[in-house]
Amino acid sequence: MNLFRLAGDLSHLLAIIILLIKIWKTRSCAGLSGKSQILFALVYITRYLDLVTTYISLYNSFMKVIFISTSLATIYLMYSKFRATYDKNHDSFRIEFLIIPCVILSLVINSNFTVLEVLWTFSIYLESVAILPQLFLVSKTGEAESITSHYLFALGSYRALYILNWIYRYYAEGHYELIAIFAGCVQTILYCDFFYLYVTKVLKGKKLQLPA
């Protein structure tokens, strides 16, 4: 564990907490993509199956349980408890266009052709693009509430911090996982446009509004 990775994990955790608080306090999931949340739940479930086969550390197991349970809780809030506020019409991204290529890619490019390893690889690929339905929703409505922007910023920062962690681990431990590094870079690049808008608008107290 190094500082970059810890900061990345905490940023990831913060994103999820921000999201849950936003939904709970406003009693609404307006402006949020349920499809992205379904993809994230799929990511955590397929990646953390090793929870039952491999013990790494208490921290590791604890975080995995938190990520799986909070993502399921988010889906419950969006699709059941606060369903009436869910912006279904704008959340029209076709997630099969993301899931199917990720399935194929994970079957073709993986480091070991075993069930757990292919599912892990699938989750890495899927995570890199799982935010697209949310970004699509923001681009369709043309704006995002500031709390949603904070959520996106924390979520995007997590993988960017992991890139620093991978650079550190490569030099300090000689450890690297090419699949995770490649997908993590793709993931971070997808947030770049948003990061720019966040810094130039949201941090200056303005609402995140896309140029017309």
Binding site: N60, T114, E117, Y176, E177
Partner: peptide, 10 residues
């Protein structure tokens, strides 16, 4: 080195 089966990151 890539560890293959064991992934220690989240």
């Amino acid at each position: 080195e890539s560890t293959g089966e064991q992934h220690d990151e989240l």
